[in-house]
């Protein structure tokens, strides 16, 4: 269980990224907490890792009146310990606290989780329900995509070649909004067998996201897992998140 050889680069300049990532087999790396296990099994064999952690603003947390801005490099542990205004702060902490284990959360990033889009991951589902927007950056050019457009399919996103996920913007919900979250996993910190998230803003229909074979999806359009056991768990998660 050792990774195949790769080259390594780190840059503190956004404008250098597209060229570094243009090399065949080059991929960006944030906390490496999902990538390293895959590399150790040699199911991922990147030719070059391009570290994003030195980029300006990459770990920033900023608040504007209607928005929480999270740099893609904000770690799960940072979210667990509290970012942004209530009630969002508590909700994000709750999701973050269930991801893997504290030492993994200390390195793993929200952006990395979204950009990998493992269909069993937590952030894609939770942030999709929370109406988050992905901030994509190519060199100095930025564009914004709602998560439902960013999360294309399992392990697939709308990132274009040379483009990286720079930040996530989460709209600040009203004080009386409710958030429901249910993750069913075989053990504490394991990847979800089913997860569901719900944002209930008074006066609006609830916004419900679930994990699915196609990745995080909004209800009612999420396909059911083929495995009847997982399909059943999915129904339970939905029921509990929306209760």
């Amino acid at each position: 269980m050792t990774p195949a050889a790769f080259a390594f680069s780190r840059t503190a300049r956004w404008e250098e990224l597209p060229a570094l990532l243009a090399e065949p087999g080059a991929i960006p790396v944030a906390g490496a907490q999902s990538l390293m296990p895959m590399m150790a099994l040699r199911v991922a064999e990147p030719a070059r890792l391009v570290a994003l952690d030195a980029l300006p603003g990459y770990r920033d947390v900023r608040q504007s009146p209607g928005l929480l801005h999270l740099g893609a490099g904000v770690t799960h542990a940072t979210a667990e310990d509290g970012v942004g205004p209530e009630p969002l702060r508590g909700w994000l902490a709750r999701v973050a606290g269930g991801i893997a284990y504290r030492p993994v959360r200390n390195r793993g990033t929200i952006g990395g989780s979204l950009a990998l889009h493992d269909p069993a991951a937590d952030w894609p589902v939770a942030l999709l329900a929370l109406r988050a927007v992905a901030v994509l950056r190519h060199g100095t050019a930025e564009r914004r995509l709602p998560l439902q457009e960013f999360l294309v399919g399992p392990f697939t996103t709308a990132l274009a070649p040379g483009e990286v996920l720079a930040a996530i913007e989460v709209p600040r919900p009203p004080e009386d909004a409710r958030f429901g979250w249910c993750k069913l996993a075989p053990s504490a910190g394991a990847f979800a067998e089913a997860s569901a998230a719900m944002l209930q803003i008074p006066g609006a229909p609830p916004r419900v996201a679930v994990s699915s074979p196609e990745g995080a999806r909004l209800m009612p359009d999420a396909p059911l897992p083929d495995d009847p056991h997982l399909a059943r768990l999915r129904e339970v998660a939905l029921r509990r998140a929306t209760a």
């Binding site: 990774p3 780190r10 890792l49 570290a51 030492p103």
Partner: peptide
Amino acid sequence: PVRACLLPASL
């Protein structure tokens, strides 16, 4: 604390 097995030393 972090997992030293999941951290490329280069990072």
